[in-house]
């Protein structure tokens, strides 16, 4: 494992995938490797794709890979699928749609299971992005789970967020609007041959018109993508989409907003890391000395309550007032 970080930076797929695996599995030493590569990250354009299941995200990702490759860019893809809450197992099926690129050394597709993480990504996603970034991938696409409206985690990681929708979802659009519409930098109406595409277009437009927008600010474009059953039309639409993605990145660069996005990402990462660092250490000790069991007993017997118990723990381990607790969301 010692050399993993170095090999990753040399672009070695096997080491990169292994390092991602070690992060997923929370192996000791994995974070050390991330530390080594971290200074070399920050070059890749991270593109998130989110939207409901069945919206065609994987097929779209597959076609975007083709577009970016044609433009000479190397591509990494992280495809997240849900783990079963019952067995912990998962079928990671997104890569099926991207298998035609499997033999292309300029493309690296890695599937991730959520392993219980909410928000549409996996806990390892952030570091996995760093790994692909450090490998030198020009574009890193992150495809979220696609289960519902709470998929906002992606904004902490991506420079450009695509919200992929399909016509004919009925009332679902309302729920999705409430959750993910604010985060889109680009909207995609996929399978635009279907009835209701025009209506969806109007709805998104109306929503975009609602908020105030400063002059010169980015107005999220809405890209209509034809059915994959019309391959030539589909290709043309996705070509256009890939241009819009690049234009958005250029906009971020030109308006010095890229830094804001980076800052947003760093903040989220530090947040998570701090929580992990403190919580994990504390929990491990509580379990090891049997304190956790005793606390459960106290709560059961109504001798105490969860809040008091937590405060006592914080007092003991953080050694100060509540004010010095790390800020949790």
């Amino acid at each position: 494992m010692v050399e993993l970080g170095k090999k990753v930076m040399a672009g070695d797929v096997r080491s990169a995938s292994r390092l991602i695996r070690n992060i997923e599995d929370n192996l000791p030493g994995a974070k050390q490797e991330i530390r080594k590569i971290f200074p070399y990250t920050g070059k890749a354009h991270v593109v998130g794709l989110t939207g409901p299941p069945g919206a065609g995200k994987s097929t779209l990702t597959d076609e975007l890979i083709r577009c970016f490759r044609r433009k000479g860019k190397t591509v990494g893809v992280l495809a997240v699928d849900p783990s079963s809450p019952f067995t912990g197992g998962a079928i990671l099926g997104d890569r099926i749609r991207m298998q035609r690129h499997a033999e292309d050394p300029g493309v690296f597709v890695r599937s991730l299971a959520t392993r219980g993480t909410m928000g549409g990504l996996s806990k390892a996603a952030g570091d996995a992005i760093h790994v692909m970034d450090a490998m030198g991938k020009d574009i890193v696409m992150v495809e979220t789970v696609g289960i519902g409206q709470q998929e906002v985690e992606i904004i902490h990681h991506a420079h450009t967020v695509l919200v992929v929708l399909v016509p004919g979802m009925g009332d679902e659009i309302q729920a999705i609007k409430a959750g993910v519409m604010e985060i889109g930098d680009i909207f995609v109406i996929n399978k635009a041959h279907r009835e209701g595409a025009g209506k969806l277009f109007k709805e998104i437009t109306a929503m975009l018109d609602m908020g105030p927008r400063e002059p010169g600010a980015w107005r999220p474009p809405i890209v209509m993508v034809e059915s994959v059953a019309e391959p030539h039309e589909f290709e043309r639409c996705v070509d256009e989409l890939s241009d819009k993605i690049e234009a958005h990145y250029q906009y971020l660069v030109n308006t010095n907003q890229l830094g804001d996005r980076q800052r947003r990402r760093s903040l989220a990462e530090i947040n998570a890391a701090v929580r992990d660092a403190i919580l994990e250490t504390v929990l491990r000790r509580l379990v090891a000395d049997g304190e956790l069991d005793r606390m459960v007993e106290k709560a059961l017997n109504k001798e105490s309550d969860p809040y008091t118990l937590a405060e006592q723990v914080a007092e003991r381990y953080l050694g100060g007032s509540k004010a010095s607790m790390p800020v949790a969301e």
């Binding site: 099926g93 099926i96 749609r97 035609r100 994959v228 059953a229 019309e230 391959p231 030539h232």
Partner: peptide, 11 residues
Amino acid sequence: VYGEYRDPGLY
């Protein structure tokens, strides 16, 4: 002309 269809691999 018509495009190639690949197994969507539904499971």
